[in-house]
């Protein structure tokens, strides 16, 4: 929320409502925008991403599908090639296994293999994240699984303002965009919601550019890089650290691919300390990519860059097992203290 927004004009929305609003406004503006997916009609999306759209636009443009991801995501690729702008929902990112071919062999390569003659303006929105005891077939993040693949853009908002702006950018983009939304931020009552994700969202259409990170808290001593839920954990940690005299700068990646290495480089050139906080599996992931990019920028580190991630273990069911594995503000505080007080590398 900007400082000029008064309480009277504020429209505090959940990410779910902001996504629904963005899709609805795009459908109003462009008849080529249609929505496909499981339970996106009368139910309005299991995670509330298509609320009110069936009532406004009808079953022709808001199409409930069978449980046939291979077919309907493949159909979205064909629709996009034919000039439509499909917004398609993969209910849980964990379900990608049954339909990845359409995503990474078709959508991601349509522009390239056609020499740029056939584009693929497709938005694939999908829920990510755990912490609520749903175990490893419904709780994964898999950011890197998608971000690894050339031809796909991958975004994830940490708040409703960015959710609307990123969705409008994604729909306007000529390329396939994987729009990930974190269940802990979504604003569905039955999942609980981090309050910081519910922010003012302007009524009018606006875009948040794909590929641009945001510095959401300035600080000189250490750079904390997060995405989605972990941005909120980093902000919470930064508040604790500030009371101890450590000023953390917090960067919200907002886009996973293409990653905004420049924004991280600018920050670490100043702080010379870096922690990446990522709730995806540890190895070969976003945390490794951010750290590699920072190292490549030639930082004279005060402490070796570090990361807090989910370890390389399938996400377990029991809270007694899952919760200790997840990134937390306490873990960020502890590691930040070590980096800031541990002396030079």
């Amino acid at each position: 929320m900007t400082a000029t927004t008064t309480a009277a004009t504020a429209r505090r929305l959940t990410i779910a409502k902001a996504m629904s609003e963005a899709i609805g406004q795009s459908m109003d503006a462009d008849p080529k925008v249609i929505v496909l997916g499981e339970d996106i009609g009368a139910l309005g999306g299991v995670f509330g991403t298509t609320q009110g759209l069936l009532e406004r636009f009808g079953a022709g443009r808001v199409r409930d599908t069978p449980i046939s991801e291979t077919a309907f995501i493949g159909a979205a690729v064909g629709l996009a090639a034919a000039g439509m702008r499909p917004v398609v929902e993969l209910m849980f990112v964990d379900f990608f296994g049954v339909c990845m071919d359409a995503i990474y062999n078709l959508a991601a390569k349509q522009s390239y293999f056609s020499g740029g003659h056939v584009c693929c303006p497709l938005v694939l929105m999908t829920s990510v994240g755990g912490g609520y005891g749903d175990a490893g077939q419904h709780s994964q993040c898999l950011y890197a699984t998608f971000a690894h693949l050339p031809g796909l853009k991958v975004v994830m908002p940490s708040n409703a303002y960015d959710a609307k702006g990123l969705m409008l950018s994604a729909i306007a983009d000529a390329n396939p965009v994987v729009f990930m939304f974190h269940k802990a931020l979504q604003g569905m009552g039955w999942l609980g919601t981090v309050p910081g994700s519910i922010v003012h969202v302007p009524q009018e259409m606006y875009e948040v550019p794909i590929g641009k990170a945001a510095t959401v808290r300035p600080g000189r001593d250490i750079t904390l890089v997060g995405l989605g839920l972990t941005v909120h954990l980093a902000l919470q940690a930064a508040t604790t650290l500030a009371a101890e005299g450590i000023e953390a700068e917090v960067i919200d990646l907002r886009t996973i691919a293409p990653l905004d290495h420049g924004a991280v480089a600018v920050s670490v050139a100043k702080s010379r300390r870096l922690i990446v906080v990522d709730d995806d599996y540890r190895s070969f992931g976003v945390s490794a990519e951010v750290i590699a990019g920072a190292c490549e920028s030639g930082v004279d580190w005060l402490a070796a860059p570090a990361r807090i991630t989910h370890p390389d273990v399938p996400i377990p069911y029991s809270p007694a097992l899952e919760h200790p594995l997840l990134p937390s503000a306490a873990k960020i505080v502890e590691l930040s203290r070590q980096l800031c007080r541990g002396g030079a590398v």
Binding site: A135, Y317, L321
Partner: peptide, 19 residues
Amino acid sequence: AEIFGKRDGLSGGRGGHMH
């Protein structure tokens, strides 16, 4: 016990209700 996420569950709490 598995559904309660407990040690004596079928998989020691790793799988849970759906697994």
